[in-house]
C-alpha cells in the first residue's frame, strides 16, 4: 500500500446534487402536508406545524448538511485497493482490493449529467448489489479511474493454485495439481 496517494474529495458540484436530492424529498413530504390541509378530520394546525418543521429541515439539509456531507465524502486510490469514506457522525470506511473486482459501472442520472458528475460503482462478489459506490465524481475522473482499474485487473496474474486447497497437506494432491496445470 502506498502512502503517496492521499484522500481526495469528490467534485464540488456534488453539494448541488445533494441539495437537489433532499429538496425533492422534502417536496414530496410537503405534498402530504398539503393533502392533510384539505382533509377536514385533521386539524389545520397540524399542517402548519408540519410545514414549518419541513421548512426548518429543508434549510438544515440544504445549507448545513449538504456542504458537510460533501466534505466527509472522500476516496483514496491506492496501488492495489480502493478506499471510500463517508459520514461525519455515522462514519464509515469501505475498502475493496483490485483483485476481487467483478465489474465496474459508471452511472449518471439527468441531474448528475447537468452537473457534470457521475457515480462510479465497483462490484465484488461480497454481497447483493453494489459493493462500493463513489458518488459525485467528475465524468472524466470516473472514466480515468475505471480505465486504470480495468487495466490493473487485466494485468493481474493469477496463479493456478487456489487459496483454499487440500494440496497443502495432502500427499496425493501435488500430482493431481500438476496434472491439472498440464491440461490448462
Amino acid at each position: 500500500m502506498t502512502d503517496t496517494q492521499s484522500w481526495q474529495n469528490v467534485a464540488r458540484n456534488y453539494i448541488w446534487y445533494l441539495r437537489f436530492d433532499k429538496t425533492v424529498l422534502i417536496a414530496l413530504l410537503f405534498v402530504f402536508v398539503v393533502i392533510a390541509w384539505f382533509i377536514d378530520a385533521i386539524p389545520q394546525w397540524v399542517s402548519y406545524v408540519s410545514a414549518a418543521v419541513l421548512l426548518v429541515l429543508w434549510v438544515i439539509l440544504v445549507f448545513l448538511w449538504a456542504p458537510i456531507r460533501y466534505r466527509v465524502t472522500r476516496y483514496l486510490l491506492a496501488d492495489d485497493r480502493v478506499h471510500f469514506q463517508l459520514g461525519a457522525w455515522w462514519w464509515r470506511e469501505t475498502s475493496v482490493t483490485h483483485n476481487r473486482l467483478q465489474h465496474i459501472e459508471i452511472q449518471q442520472g439527468p441531474i448528475e449529467r447537468l452537473l457534470g458528475i457521475s457515480r462510479l460503482i465497483l462490484y465484488t462478489a461480497g454481497g447483493t448489489g453494489a459493493d462500493l459506490v463513489i458518488p459525485g465524481l467528475p465524468m472524466d475522473d470516473s472514466e480515468a479511474i475505471r480505465n486504470q482499474l480495468l487495466q490493473d485487473i487485466a494485468q493481474e496474474e493469477i496463479s493456478d493454485e487456489a487459496i483454499t486447497s487440500a494440496a497443502l497437506t495432502s500427499s496425493a494432491e501435488p500430482q493431481a495439481e500438476a496434472e491439472e496445470r498440464r491440461h490448462d
Binding site: 464509515r92 461480497g126 459493493d131
Partner: peptide, 26 residues
C-alpha cells in the same frame, strides 16, 4: 478471500473510541 472490508462508527461508539468491523466474503 475478502471481497470488501468496512469499518463504521456511530456517535455512541465514538465516545468509547470503538468501531465495528464488517468483513464481506462471497
Amino acid at each position: 478471500k475478502m471481497q470488501r472490508v468496512s469499518i463504521q462508527q456511530s456517535p455512541w461508539q465514538r465516545l468509547f473510541g470503538c468501531c465495528q468491523l464488517r468483513a464481506d466474503t462471497a
